[in-house]
Write a protein that binds this DNA or RNA. Structure first.
Lengths: 139, 139
DNA sequence: ACTTAATTAATAATCATTCTCAATTAGGAA
DNA sequence: TTCCTAATTGAGAATGATTATTAATTAAGT
């Protein structure tokens, strides 16, 4: 999903298309590093100084509710946002907190087999692996 | 792992065995409903009124650091604690927040195959499926 | 251009969790 | 058993993340 498609979806749902929503949507879609709301805010502040942190939170929440992005909450620290909603594995470094997506065909295949066995129909999923990333392992 | 084994581990690590730690450990091990720290506190307050919420937080954190329990943070609401550290799926109702563990032999088998393919060695994992539980689906 | 409801910025309020520190206690040593 | 000391605890203050409030602004249909 690209940012234009998101704007179309907003329109379809009767939601207003604002500069802020456009910028936030575009920005989060462009990231693979799972930023926090604060980080999205800091990045956008440079080109759009009037933007407010509350708007960033509200918009990310809206994107989440619309199923466009994933929310990753942890025991500690702020929520991380992931534009990848396909079945994949979040490789989470327990030391530095970096998160990279691991996506493999067989993960998706297995997942589809699994959910077929359930009587429930999932509305989403989350798969995390906690490990030490290369950088942190060296130290 | 039972609570006596946890006490043995505490001893081994040079950690003091207190009434609070005993009660909190025993309680969380007995639950399958993934309670919050607040809920653990409320339950234990009845038989041990002097217990403090800070101690509950600290002890649950300690158990987590020792790898005895799992911490499940979400985008909203408090952290939930899960004494089941085996590979399993957390079935999370997106409406009422109930969490039940889904454990199947093939989940573990597949998981072991998967992590063999990674060059990283995981220190833990988390698998969630978001869905509507039976009760909430009826409404 | 006009209207109006939705959205925004700014900041106060809230919620969950951690921190601080004086008092208490576990558990090893005498 | 009693003593000693460092670890732990309870109580509440402090912090950090997020949400709520509200007056001002703005998107977008008429």
């Amino acid at each position: 999903m690209n940012d234009q498609q998101i704007m179309d979806l907003f329109h379809e749902k009767g939601l207003k298309i604002t500069t802020q929503r456009r910028l936030i949507s575009k920005y989060i879609l462009s990231r693979t590093d799972h930023p926090t709301a604060e980080q999205v805010y800091s990045a956008l502040e440079k080109e759009y100084p009037a933007i407010s942190l509350a708007t960033v939170y509200k918009t990310l929440n809206l994107l989440y509710k619309l199923g466009i992005i994933q929310e990753l909450g942890f025991g500690e620290g702020p929520v991380r946002y992931d534009p990848n909603t396909a079945v994949h594995i979040n490789m989470v470094c327990t030391k530095c907190g970096s998160i990279i997506d691991y996506r493999a065909k067989d993960v998706e295949t297995w997942w589809n087999e699994l959910i077929e066995k359930l009587d429930a129909q999932p509305v989403g999923q989350r798969i995390d692996i906690y490990y030490l990333c290369e950088k942190c392992k060296k130290k």
